[in-house]
Measured scan of single mutants.
Amino acid sequence: MSIQHFRVALIPFFAAFCLPVFAHPETLVKVKDAEDQLGARVGYIELDLNSGKILESFRPEERFPMMSTFKVLLCGAVLSRVDAGQEQLGRRIHYSQNDLVEYSPVTEKHLTDGMTVRELCSAAITMSDNTAANLLLTTIGGPKELTAFLHNMGDHVTRLDRWEPELNEAIPNDERDTTMPAAMATTLRKLLTGELLTLASRQQLIDWMEADKVAGPLLRSALPAGWFIADKSGAGERGSRGIIAALGPDGKPSRIVVIYTTGSQATMDERNRQIAEIGASLIKHW
């Protein structure tokens, strides 16, 4: 067993022997301040990774656009098919120029040779490549099948209805392509620590998230040296922004954090800054 596999296998073990965790309302004060600064709703939840206990939450059962955070769930569904012998990570998928959609920095470079399922998941999570996500959605049967996968996990809230990039439209009061912070946090925890996926697939999923290259201005910008984070960000229309993450000190994750916002007129930089400040408060009061 590799060191990384050992780390993920012992996530519940280490967490069980940690000192009790206590909620700190100071972080919620910052979440509410972010709402004021952005002029928009902000949803927040913080779960203990081992027990699933909610440590703090704000608007945990209000719907927010998922945006690209759905790509972690998508690759979880792909990995479940791999575990069941219905898919192979090494299978190569070929596609054409007509398949390319807006923001496809990886797939646009491989029109000639195609990409493997493993490479597509890596591109979808680490670079948020939209064509990679659409190609992977095709392998599982489309958005409705991802929703069905989530329902089978016990998540009857999260739903995907459309493809990239239309799913980022974020129309107010439109339930399409949305989740709730509580539902997303619980589902992410199941994917990373539950028995739904094999140990190898859980490790692969967290490795992809740990290698995320496009979430630097968010929670990662607030992390002290030595902290662990595996995350996936999302951005959408109407001032929408979000991030889902597993993080913790001492090089291992111990909490799940989900943050979503929508309806702001603020710039992307300002949305990023507010999420980073929430992260800084979380870490300060850990």
Rank of each mutant, 00 (worst) to 15 (best):
L188I: 12
M184S: 03
A170L: 08
T126G: 12
S221F: 09
A84Y: 10
P172S: 12
L188T: 09
D177S: 02
E87H: 04
I256G: 02
D174H: 04
L197T: 05
G226K: 10
S281M: 11
T69C: 05
K32C: 09
L160H: 06
Y95E: 01
H24S: 14
S221G: 10
L199N: 15
V21Q: 05
D231C: 04
E108G: 12
R92S: 10
F13R: 02
L111D: 07
F6L: 10
A133I: 00
V42S: 03
S122I: 13
A40V: 06
N168A: 08
T158Q: 01
C121W: 00
S201D: 02
A225P: 15
G39I: 09
F70E: 02
M67G: 13
R238N: 15
D33A: 15
R176T: 07
N98T: 15
H151S: 11
R63F: 06
K32G: 09
L100E: 04
E145T: 11
T147W: 04
L197P: 04
D33N: 14
Q274A: 13
G248F: 01
A40Q: 09
M66F: 09
E195T: 12
Q274P: 05
K252I: 12
G194E: 12
V21C: 15
G242Q: 02
S128Y: 00
L223Q: 05
A132T: 02
P65M: 02
V8L: 14
V42L: 13
I3M: 08
E210Y: 10
G248M: 01
S122L: 15
A16C: 14
I278H: 00
G52T: 05
E46Q: 12
R176K: 14
G242W: 00
I275S: 01
G141C: 05
S281E: 14
P217V: 09
L218W: 02
Y260H: 01
F13D: 01
I206M: 14
S201Q: 06
C121D: 00
D113I: 07
V8E: 10
G236E: 02
L38H: 07
S104W: 01
P25D: 09
P65R: 02
R273I: 10
V257G: 01
T112K: 15
P217C: 07
I54Y: 09
R238L: 10
T107W: 01
A200C: 13
H285Y: 12
V258R: 00
L223N: 03
I54A: 10
F22P: 05
V82Y: 07
A230R: 02
Y103R: 04
G216W: 08
E46R: 04
S233V: 03
K30V: 11
R189H: 13
D250L: 12
A23C: 06
G43I: 00
T262V: 08
E35V: 04
M1W: 01
H156P: 11
Q204I: 10
F70T: 06
D161N: 08
L219C: 04
A245C: 10
A222Y: 09
T107I: 05
E108F: 08
L196Q: 15
H285F: 15
R241N: 04
V101I: 12
L28Q: 08
L79K: 00
S240E: 09
I256K: 00
T198G: 11
Q37P: 04
I125W: 00
I171T: 14
L188N: 02
T261A: 09
E169A: 14
E61D: 14
W227R: 00
K32R: 14
L89D: 05
F13N: 03
P25C: 09
F228A: 09
F22L: 13
N134G: 03
E277L: 11
A124S: 11
I11H: 05
S2H: 15
C121G: 05
E56Y: 05
E169Q: 13
G85E: 11
Q265P: 11
T193D: 09
A211T: 10
E210S: 10
R41S: 09
A211R: 14
I244V: 13
E270D: 15
L282Y: 03
D269C: 11
L136T: 04
M153H: 10
R220K: 06
F13S: 08
D83W: 02
I140H: 04
I54V: 15
Q203G: 13
T158C: 03
A225L: 12
F64E: 01
A40T: 08
Y260T: 04
T262I: 09
R176C: 09
L135Q: 07
R220F: 03
G141S: 06
E61P: 01
Q86M: 11
S2D: 07
Q4D: 08
P217M: 14
R238M: 14
A200S: 15
A40S: 10
T139A: 15
T186Y: 13
A132L: 00
D83G: 05
E56W: 05
D36H: 10
I171V: 15
G76S: 11
L219E: 03
S96T: 13
L136C: 04
A9S: 15
N130T: 03
N173C: 14
T27C: 08
D269Y: 13
V42M: 10
A148L: 14
M66W: 01
C121I: 05
S80L: 11
T158P: 00
G52S: 07
I206A: 14
L247M: 15
H285V: 09
Y260E: 00
Q204N: 14
G239W: 01
A123V: 07
L192K: 01
I275R: 00
E237V: 10
E195N: 15
A280D: 14
E169P: 05
L49H: 05
T131V: 05
S264Q: 06
T112E: 15
L135V: 10
M127Q: 11
R176F: 08
A84N: 14
F64D: 00
S68G: 00
E46G: 05
